[in-house]
Design a protein around this nucleic acid. Sequence first.
DNA 1: TATTGTTATACTCTATAACTATA
DNA 2: TATAGTTATAGAGTATAACAATA
Lengths: 157, 157
Amino acid sequence: MLMNKDATAAQRGYSVLVDDPGFLLARVNARQLSVVGEALRPLGLRPRSYTILRLAATNDPPMQRDLAHVLELDPSQVVTLVDDLQRAGLVERHQSEIDRRSNVIVATDLGKARLVEAASVVTEAHSTVFAVLDTAEKDALHDALRRITLAEWEEEE
Amino acid sequence: MLMNKDATAAQRGYSVLVDDPGFLLARVNARQLSVVGEALRPLGLRPRSYTILRLAATNDPPMQRDLAHVLELDPSQVVTLVDDLQRAGLVERHQSEIDRRSNVIVATDLGKARLVEAASVVTEAHSTVFAVLDTAEKDALHDALRRITLAEWEEEE
DNA sequence: TATTGTTATACTCTATAACTATA
DNA sequence: TATAGTTATAGAGTATAACAATA
């Protein structure tokens, strides 16, 4: 059907895009990155530094090599991200005891405190992005994404 | 080579990441972009040019301004994308009859033929990415992403 | 000889401002 | 005055190669 120029995106021919799961995935992810990034900015974090901080605050903190692997980044990019977190006093580089080439990235107390705030605003950002879904649908979406990712990780070996 | 001296990603502390829908969304999208991009490369297309070509092949072909809007790109970026498609003979710029400033982007016959091939390889790429989901789960995922996107589009007005 | 982290560099993508031709 | 398309440019992000220290 032909529409005037004020027709909405959904009403116009853009319906072909809505049939493309790849387009939708890219679109929703862009929105998520934007909303989460905006929420984290006042805390001096970005989506990636937030992820690194989360890992650094666990009982089994990662080495830089691990970060490059899970974030699918080049090791040289991890250097910059860890530099920024370290400069902000949120993480420290500890030389590994078993391999002196390796840095273990551990969160400081300040980093752990910051992480608590960050996790809160990120959760709120997610609920904004997924607001149109009910709880069961949110869980199903989360579960589907998790299984795709886990399957991919298992393939790597 | 990826040896087994370390536990797998899923077995280690990375489980905290798997609880983050934003991380998973970014991860799955990166994988999708990579697989789709690889599949489209032999056809001289990239994910974004493919989207533009799809819209250009509809009965209600878009103006560049529309492309910038749905792809959430700056108009200046659309110029380059349309330039490439036009140079490849897949689309043409037609001056709008109602506003001579505007270009309507329409697919050529070659473009429509290329689109048929492209749609095929993209569909196959998607089934690779979503392989771990059964049909009902794929549909549910697609539906959730569609509703999030449509809701966002409706908010814009 | 291979790997971890690092530096340097080039390339791509994105964001911004200014210009033109139309409206 | 405002808008569609274009151009130019600077910034962020990404990819690649080389290097030192260590294994």
